[in-house]
């Protein structure tokens, strides 16, 4: 019953959907009131992108609520739990830097994703800027914040190689160039923040990967259980 569209709108839509969901978990828990507004703002932008992308691939609610875990195509980075504020910022820095580069490229091409990419690249630039500013504050703030930020960057590093695995249907994207540019930008942001670029591998047996093929990490099942439970409890209902 579940459709398996092959359009690249699906993996990109899943990235936005799942990261938006994780950011939504911060509501009421942010360290300062301004961040309640900012994190919700980013979550809403991503949800808006997700809805457009999933609608290109099929029915947005069917795709979000009725697929099994193995049919989600998001990268594993976006499903990682929020952790402390530093983990959330590290995840956002890694992802938004990638998403901005990808959308920037797609905005100049002529594909069904071009209109979305053109609009979303501006949102994504703001998300990246927000994460970069916090990386600076936390990296070059107190000893504690520096330690926490470095720990978060290190912990999530192994999930970054997968960002540049080619996506089916996006054959013209110069993934290696994007990856090099991503590394340059991240290195510059971390150096300004007095932080160290993590040294571990980004590819190999013990690094992350496989999200685009529907292989996810253990926390993802619980995320879906929570997200899908109400919708699935009332088959055919309208909300």
């Amino acid at each position: 019953m579940t459709p398996h569209p092959t359009t690249p709108a699906l993996p990109l839509g899943d990235d936005a959907l799942i990261l938006s969901h994780r950011l939504g978990e911060w509501a009421g828990n942010a360290p300062v009131l301004e961040e309640e507004v900012a994190l919700a703002n980013i979550a809403l932008d991503l949800l808006g992108q997700a809805r457009i992308l999933l609608s290109l691939a099929g029915d947005e609610d069917e795709l979000a609520y009725l697929r099994e875990e193995r049919h989600f195509r998001n990268v594993q980075l976006v499903e990682q739990p929020n952790g402390d504020f530093a983990h959330t910022i590290a995840r956002q820095l890694y992802f938004s830097t990638y998403q901005e580069l990808l959308y920037d490229h797609l905005a100049t091409t002529d594909t069904p994703l071009t209109p979305l990419a053109g609009k979303a690249v501006k949102e994504t630039a703001y998300h990246r800027d927000h994460a970069t500013q916090w990386t600076l504050r936390l990296g070059d703030g107190t000893d504690e914040s520096h330690t926490r930020m470095q720990r978060a960057l290190d912990a999530l590093w192994r999930f970054t190689g997968e960002l540049f695995d080619p996506v089916d249907g996006l054959d013209d994207v110069p993934w290696q160039t994007l990856r090099d540019e991503w590394t340059t930008r991240i290195t510059s942001a971390l150096e300004r923040a007095t932080l160290t670029v993590p040294a571990g591998p980004r590819h190999g047996a013990w690094t992350a990967g496989g999200g685009r093929q529907g292989l996810h990490t253990e926390p993802f099942g619980r995320l879906l259980a929570e997200m899908q439970h109400l919708h699935r409890s009332h088959p055919g209902a309208t909300w």
Binding site: L17, H21, G24, E25, A27, L47, A50, R51, L54, E60, D61, A64, Y65, E226, M227, H229, L230, H231, H234, A237, W239
Partner: peptide, 8 residues
């Protein structure tokens, strides 16, 4: 928020 039954 995390259990809302439709994306809208």
């Amino acid at each position: 928020i995390t259990r809302a039954p439709s994306l809208r």
